[in-house]
Amino acid sequence: MRGTHSVMVQNKRIRYDFDIRRNLTIIQGDSATGKTTLISMIEEYYENGPVSGIELRSDKECVILSGRKWRNDLAVIQDSIVFIDEGNEFIFTDEFSASIRSTDNYYVIVTREGIPSLPYSIEEIYGIRDSGKFGALKQVYNEFYHLYHAGKRQEIKNFGMIIAEDSNSGYQFFQSVVERDIICKSAKGTI
């Protein structure tokens, strides 16, 4: 799966509207912002469809992954947006990180704990915020917002040396790409 996918899920009381941009999205933030409610609504829609009273619009199927049978369930999920609520300890296992690398799904994971084995961007860590009432209904409208920013990227000019922290791939990368008149040194892990 590639690109950005929009998801809208709502019932009579609450509406979520958000875009998923990368294969790994993390949801964190304060308690009582509606993280578990979002997951529950997606699960109820998946199990019961429109007769659940929930409306869900997305160009990809939205599914929930949880519990001890996650391996079997994941084996048959393709081209979907997979939501995982907190309380699922399997997300911290090497087996899980290896399993999702061979899939074409996008994953939205609720966790405050870091997952070192998964390569997600800090730009894809979101909180959920209440953006007020939606339309004429007394429906709360929730959206995702960035919790962190990588900062503005700046072009660095007029430098004569690059010091790479490591002596392996990082150092070799810079050594290959820098212009000839710029010196590239390795700190060999000492900085």
Binding site: R13, I14, S31, K35
Partner: peptide
Amino acid sequence: PVLGKIAPVSLSGGV
């Protein structure tokens, strides 16, 4: 205020 009348199991995970 959002979900209406709820049971304790529907409180936030934090609470």
